[in-house]
Amino acid sequence: MEQIPILQVGEFLLVSIQVDLHDRLVLRLQDDLTAQVVKKQAKGVLIDLSTVEIVDSFIGRMLGNMAALSQMLGAHAVVVGIRPAVAITIVELGLSLNNVHTALNVDKGIALLQTLVKQSSAEVRDEAYPL
């Protein structure tokens, strides 16, 4: 059965979507990704959409879900590589994706994840040793 590969890069997971997405495939990805975040104890998830030609309301909702689920399991999520035409269409469609972090490309996404991880570990220290 078709499956979208999830790669491990250090403490992060990288999902690079290279096929034409359909609903069943996205649902399966959501299951796989949550399982992998737990199994690999990932600190961050990077979803690369640079070859994705459309994001409709279902795919958009699933992106939001995956970000929320990862967050719940202790990993930050960043969506990268959204194409200009796709970004315009998402906005016109009325999707907000407000709870999802975004970056221009994989490089910048990894940098953003590192900042987010640093910030949250600083928060944890602050809570552990209150002044």
């Binding site: 200009p84 315009i88 269409t89």
Partner: peptide, 26 residues
């Protein structure tokens, strides 16, 4: 998408129309 490319629609037009078709098809 292929027909739209043939007819010379812009990338944004293609993406909008294909996305709409995807919503309605679903």
């Amino acid at each position: 998408r292929a027909r739209m490319v043939e007819l010379g629609f812009t990338l944004v037009e293609q993406t909008k129309m294909v996305t709409a078709a995807s919503e309605l098809g679903r």
